[in-house]
Design a protein around this nucleic acid. Structure first.
Lengths: 398, 398
DNA sequence: TCACATTTGGGGTCAAGGGCAACATATTCG
DNA sequence: CGAATATGTTGCCCTTGACCCCAAATGTGA
């Protein structure tokens, strides 16, 4: 792959990749539009598109009725029958989805579990689901890859889950297990990192190349960093674990936890407590907090917001992103008084860095992790459409 | 540039760039070695090398006498007559150097100044020095570009210095000024960011693709981040300002400054104070601290080390680098008890992230900023050797 | 209403340019 | 002199791009 870079078909592969990436991210595009976007010759685009059609990756359909002068241009779209299987194992359930190359979620299933699943149990469940879906109404489709979003530390090099405390996994070779069970290429990523990718490509961070994503979950705070349009992994792929950071806490009265770790100070559990709840999903918690007249609710929200602001300012100073995306209960904390949060960040961040900064809450809903995991699964295909196609060109029968 | 990407000569340009980059970074290489490193065909490498020779960017010399079997292979080396002018304006002096494409510093001059220079004064000084050097013994060389390392916030898009408090600059269009004065393309960067680049390419961070660099100077703490082998700029190019961060301070007794900003807590001024000095250069301060039996010296070093450890752990959790490089007085603080610093970082960083981490002090001396600035100045040439050559191909006369 | 101009874009052919394979040759060591 | 390593040269292949012609839509005037 890295060897074939300076050669002729390197160009060809890159062009195929560029075309496929465009229709994947921007949706259906006319061939004429593709020529202008790629800067390539019409003939070249036509040839490339034809090749992608032969590979079964895109479909070419009749021109959209446009009320303009001139010959209509055929529309190229990602083939919705090209699927990735996205998997998110969690404490109480495993969510599995079939995500198409056009970004749509073709099917989605949440399998509740009564005990913590071991890695091999997850692999078996994934394989069984895959088999079931293949033989049901997704027959005309083909699954090219599997992507897992795991709540824990994932080593990028080999897809090993180093530590996933809530799942009870340590050094779990989940990639190998799922690969053996499904006979498909598997990618594994940290859930928050994949959420960051999803928000970057399809959510609040569209058209933004430098963003920090922070997600507040039941078990802590995870994050992902996109800089220059690329997910930042770091040396081992563990980057983005802001939850373990120790931000400065200006008011000693604001301290709760001993170590001063962000996810101990800013936590869903503390919000549930002041709301007088024991368990709730995110909208319920948000509503309860908004409506509550209980003493301490506003104070606790403000306290967590102050600490969050310092953590965000630290990240902004270090990374100078143009966007911070907050998800999960952090969105709830932010929404409780967005102006105050922004003011507190502005106070602690460098002015030059803050002036380009926007703070938004996550735009994607529950599909976020599925889309992020599928994106990771598709990434090698998108980078080089000719490599790694398991079954080779698809010859249409007519 | 972005348009010519998928085309034929895009390959050619990339291959030229790859070859030039290799001899630039790794020093002289035999043509045979280049073929294996690039993965290209021998014929191709020969043609490319010849082209670079014609462009006056590399020289091809007789094979090194190697005592091995086989035909000797000609050696390709970056042409030492290709120069960039590196400039570092500081409070008390302006340092200017001629840095060659092979990494050597051909000439270096420190111009002491008796008042803070305004941006246009710096531009005039640079132009005058350039003229002087051109007409003296650097006649056979040619200056291709100018790189400035500025102690302040530099907007990447247009080389505007947004704020350089110690120079007294605000919104100074230094790039335009120097470009007009010298008639050369100019790049401007933050001094610490360029130091990070230099350490990454030629110093303690060779062969390391993910590093965080922190430099302790008289006026504060600056930093630079290299991830995936690339300098991280962020949206505006201001990334790396760790000095403005607020790390958690575990012991309330350790707090000194009100805001809790890193560079107020961990500062050279406080070290000078406990050492009983008013002013000193870095080696003097380090020696004084090491020899001192004054009360409080060890305590202050330990205090600063504890806070620095938290700041480093925060960076490690967020970015998962494989190396942290400490320069300036931070190297002094670290060297006072490196094992303790490592232990304190280990305690506060995620184990998975810490296990791949090394903490080192900067390897490059005073030339660091010159090399970093020159690297930035050369970057466009290295990225595309055919573009931006001001005077076109050099035709050798024989 | 119908022919015709205008505009936009597809199809096909051929040329150009860059990299590669193959064959022949050169240089050093044992 | 043979083995090993590496260069030089020539012809070929492959991909892109330019060119010419045609196709499909809209608008217009007799």
């Amino acid at each position: 792959m890295t060897e074939r870079d300076g050669t002729l078909d390197g160009v060809h592969r890159r062009n195929l990749s560029k075309l496929l990436g465009l229709v994947h991210l921007d949706g259906p595009l006319s061939r004429a539009r593709l020529t202008t976007l790629t800067g390539l010759n019409r003939s070249t685009v036509a040839a490339l598109a034809g090749e992608l059609v032969d590979l079964g990756l895109v479909v070419e359909r009749a021109p959209d009725p446009t009320n303009r002068v001139g010959r209509p241009s055929p529309v190229i779209a990602a083939d919705p029958r090209v699927l990735a299987l996205a998997v998110n194992p969690e404490v109480d359930a495993v969510t599995i989805a079939a995500v198409a190359l056009d970004g749509s979620v073709a099917r989605r299933e949440r399998v509740e579990v009564d005990h913590l699943l071991a890695p091999d149990e997850v692999a078996a469940l994934v394989a069984a689901t895959l088999e079931r879906w293949r033989s049901s109404h997704l027959q005309s489709s083909r699954f090219l890859a599997v992507g897992l979003a795991v709540p824990g530390l994932v080593r990028a090099s080999d897809g090993m889950v180093r530590l996933a405390p809530h799942l009870g996994w340590a050094d779990a070779p989940i990639r190998t297990l799922v690969e053996q069970a499904t006979q498909l290429p598997v990618t594994v990523g940290n859930d928050a990192s994949l959420g960051a990718v999803a928000e970057h490509l399809f959510g609040a961070g569209r058209d933004v190349d430098d963003l920090v994503y922070l997600n507040g979950g039941a078990s802590g705070i995870g994050g992902g960093i996109v800089l220059g349009g690329r997910l930042v992994g770091g040396a081992g792929g563990y980057a983005g674990e802001f939850g373990q950071n120790r931000p400065g806490i200006a008011l000693t009265a604001d301290r709760r936890a001993d170590g001063g770790v962000l996810e101990d100070e800013v936590s869903r559990a503390r919000l549930l407590e002041v709301a007088g709840l024991t368990t709730a999903d995110e909208p319920t918690l948000a509503a309860a907090l908004a409506d509550s007249i209980r003493p301490g609710v506003a104070q606790e929200l403000a306290r967590q917001r102050r600490i969050l602001a310092t953590a965000l300012a630290n990240a902004v100073n270090a990374l100078n992103p143009s966007l911070v995306v907050l998800g999960g209960f952090l969105a709830t904390v932010a929404d409780s008084d967005l102006a105050a949060l922004e003011a507190e960040v502005a106070e602690q961040a460098m002015p030059a860095a803050f002036e380009q900064l926007a703070i938004r809450t996550a735009a994607l809903g529950e599909d976020r992790l599925m889309i992020g995991a599928a994106e990771a699964a598709f990434s090698s295909l998108l980078a080089d459409p000719l490599a790694g196609l398991p079954i080779g060109p698809v010859h249409e029968q007519r």
